[in-house]
C-alpha cells in the first residue's frame, strides 16, 4: 500500500528506540507521552512541508497537489549534491553547501515553471489548476528516478550523538535537531512575511491581488517569487525528512499529509499550518502506536483523513483561515 512507509515510521522508530509494547500502569502513561512527543517532533517537519503548500496558495490561490514531489526533489537534489560533489565527508558545512546548491536549483526550477507554464494558466478553471499540479507531480515522480539514477540518496544527520534523555523520555538526536531546524525555518519565513517589504507585498497579494496590483505590486513577479520560496522551503523539508526517515523516491508520500494539515489549519494561514501539523503529527503517532496492532498497518492515513473530513464539516475555512464570504 502506498501509504505504508509513513505509517510505519513511528512504529519502527519505537522499536529502534527500544520501547516495548504498551504495558499497564505508569508504563502506559509513559508510552502515551512518548507517542505524543514523537508525534509533535514529526509534526514540526510536517509543518514545514505544509508551509511549501501554504506559500503558494497564499500568493496565487493555487493548490499544489505536487507538494510531496517538490519535497522529494528537494531531498534528491541535496543528496545528489552531497554525494556528487563529494561534500558528504565535510560534515555540517558540506550538508549546508549541498542544501544551498539544491535550493538554488529548486528556485530556478520553480521560476522556470512559473514563467513557462503557469503564466499561461492565469484565469483558468480550478479543475485545470488541480490537474496541472497533479500532472506536475506525475512528471516529477517520473523524471526523479531517471535524473537521480544511481545516486545515493541517504542524508545522514550532521550531529552524531547517542540517544538523548529528557525528563525520562529517550529521544533520537536527529529528530530533535530536525524539529528545531524546522521550527527555525518556519519562524524565518514568518518573519520574512511579517517584517520585510517583499513579505508585505506577498501579504497584500494574498489579501486582494487586484488591489495589490493597483497599489503598484508586481503580482506576477511576486507569484514567481513565492513559487521559488516554496521550492527552497521544500528543499529544507526534504532534507529533514530524509534525515529522520531515510530519503529516496518514497519521500513524495509525505505530500499526502499536507491536505489534512492545511484544511485543519486554514489554507492560507502560516500559524494554522503549524497547529494543523501538530494535530496531524500527534494523531498519526497515536494512531500507529495504538491502532495499528488492532486493525492493521497504515491506519494513520485513515485517521488523518477522518480528521480532515471532521474539520471540513465543522469549520471548512480552518482554524486560522480567512472566512471568505461569497457575494451572491
Amino acid at each position: 500500500m502506498r501509504a505504508a512507509p509513513i505509517a510505519t515510521l513511528n512504529a519502527t522508530a519505537a522499536a529502534s528506540a527500544g520501547w516495548p509494547e504498551a504495558g499497564g500502569g505508569h508504563r502506559f502513561v509513559a508510552y502515551f507521552i512518548w507517542l505524543v512527543v514523537y508525534g509533535a517532533l514529526a509534526g514540526a517537519i510536517y509543518a514545514l512541508v505544509a508551509l511549501t503548500f501554504v506559500i503558494v496558495y497564499k500568493a496565487s490561490r493555487t493548490m499544489n497537489f505536487a507538494t510531496g514531489e517538490w519535497v522529494m526533489f528537494g531531498a534528491l537534489l541535496t543528496s545528489s549534491g552531497l554525494h556528487g560533489f563529494n561534500l558528504a565527508g565535510a560534515g555540517l558545512a558540506g550538508l549546508l553547501g549541498a542544501i544551498l546548491i539544491a535550493a538554488l536549483a529548486m528556485a530556478a526550477f520553480a521560476t522556470a515553471l512559473s514563467r513557462v507554464v503557469l503564466r499561461h494558466m492565469t484565469g483558468r478553471s480550478l479543475m485545470a489548476m488541480i490537474m496541472l499540479t497533479l500532472g506536475l507531480g506525475t512528471l516529477m515522480r517520473g523524471f526523479g528516478p531517471i535524473i537521480f539514477k544511481g545516486r545515493a540518496n541517504a542524508i545522514v544527520s550532521p550531529i552524531e550523538s547517542d540517544y538523548i534523555e529528557i525528563l525520562g523520555l529517550v529521544l533520537p538526536p536527529e529528530r530533535l535537531l530536525s524539529a528545531v531546524v524546522a521550527t527555525l525555518c518556519i519562524a524565518a519565513v514568518g518573519c520574512f512575511y511579517q517584517y520585510t517589504r517583499t513579505g508585505l507585498a506577498l501579504r497584500a497579494i494574498a489579501a486582494d491581488p487586484a488591489a495589490a496590483s493597483g497599489a503598484g505590486v508586481d503580482v506576477t513577479g511576486h507569484i514567481t517569487l513565492s513559487w521559488a520560496l516554496a521550492g527552497i522551503v521544500a528543499v529544507v523539508a526534504g532534507v529533514l525528512w530524509s534525515i529522520v526517515s531515510g530519503g529516496g523516491i518514497g519521500t513524495a508520500l509525505v505530500g499526502m499529509k499536507v491536505f489534512p494539515i492545511v484544511v485543519i489549519g486554514g489554507l492560507n494561514s502560516i500559524p494554522g499550518c503549524i497547529l494543523g501539523a501538530m494535530v496531524i503529527g500527534v494523531a498519526d503517532s497515536l494512531a500507529s502506536g495504538y491502532l495499528d496492532r488492532l486493525v492493521g498497518s497504515g491506519v494513520s492515513i485513515v485517521v488523518s483523513s477522518l480528521l480532515l473530513l471532521a474539520a471540513l464539516w465543522l469549520r471548512p475555512w480552518g482554524l486560522f483561515g480567512e472566512r471568505v464570504a461569497t457575494r451572491v
Binding site: M121, A128, G135, T138, L139, R141, G142, P145, I146
Partner: peptide, 27 residues
C-alpha cells in the same frame, strides 16, 4: 537492464508532460 528500469518512470514522465502540454496548449 537500465531500459527495463527506466520504462515505468519514463511512462510517468511523458504522461505528466502531456497532461501539462494539453492544459496549456489545447485546453
Amino acid at each position: 537492464s537500465t531500459l527495463a528500469a527506466t520504462i515505468p518512470s519514463l511512462r510517468l514522465a511523458i504522461f505528466g508532460s502531456l497532461i501539462i502540454f494539453f492544459l496549456v496548449v489545447e485546453p
